[in-house]
């Protein structure tokens, strides 16, 4: 999957047609990001659909925003956090197959995803956030700076500190995958 570039997306879309184009460019990467956050592709699609509709509803207010991709990721992440808080998805035990064609592989992926999220949960939230945007979403540090409302040096520092903590966790076996 190739992530859409900020240049290709342009500014915040204002018409139904422009939203159609935005959807074409970003739907797969946003659904993937939400699925990795939630461990559940079906909930992921619901979350991303809500985000697109919210983005459309608020298009006038957001028309001056140029970093559309970063804002969309932030909206998706916030929705995922709300959903996880509401339904305690993190505690869910049974794997939900991502692909009915290969349930074993899907179960393996789900299990890896569950552990990844568990690992992320053991480092400070603002560091996990930056790492997720960088590693899971492929956002640049300038896009992440926009998404989290901090400077580029700050998000880079958070990334480094987070990676260092994860490294220690992995080394000591506290977060083995």
């Amino acid at each position: 999957m190739v992530a859409a570039t900020s240049e290709a997306i342009g500014s915040w879309p204002q018409t139904v047609e422009e939203f159609g184009r935005l959807l074409e460019l970003t739907q797969h990467e946003l659904v993937q990001f939400a699925a990795w956050q939630l461990g559940n592709p079906l909930d992921a699609e619901d979350v991303v659909q809500d985000v697109y509709v919210q983005a459309f509803r608020e298009r006038l207010d957001r028309r001056h925003i140029t970093e559309v991709r970063a804002y969309l990721y932030r909206m998706v992440r916030n929705r995922c956090i709300d959903l996880l808080r509401t339904h305690s998805r993190m505690a869910r035990a049974a794997p939900e197959p991502a692909s009915p064609d290969d349930p074993f592989r899907a179960a393996q992926a789900f299990e890896q995803n569950r552990r990844l999220r568990g690992l992320m949960g053991r480092i400070p939230g603002n560091e996990a956030e930056v790492i997720q945007y960088r590693v899971w979403a492929g956002l640049s540090f300038s896009e992440i700076a926009v998404a989290v409302g901090a400077s580029v040096p700050t998000v880079k520092s958070r990334f480094r500190y987070g990676i260092e903590k994860l490294r220690r966790l992995l080394r000591t076996g506290g977060g083995s995958l």
Partner: peptide, 29 residues
Amino acid sequence: EVMAVLTPHQSVAASDSFQERVMKAIIQE
């Protein structure tokens, strides 16, 4: 090493009907 560990093994894509469903919701809005 850490970044390789953190990268999920399985990629996920939106379902075939997703785009149509979202566009319907936007048009409804």
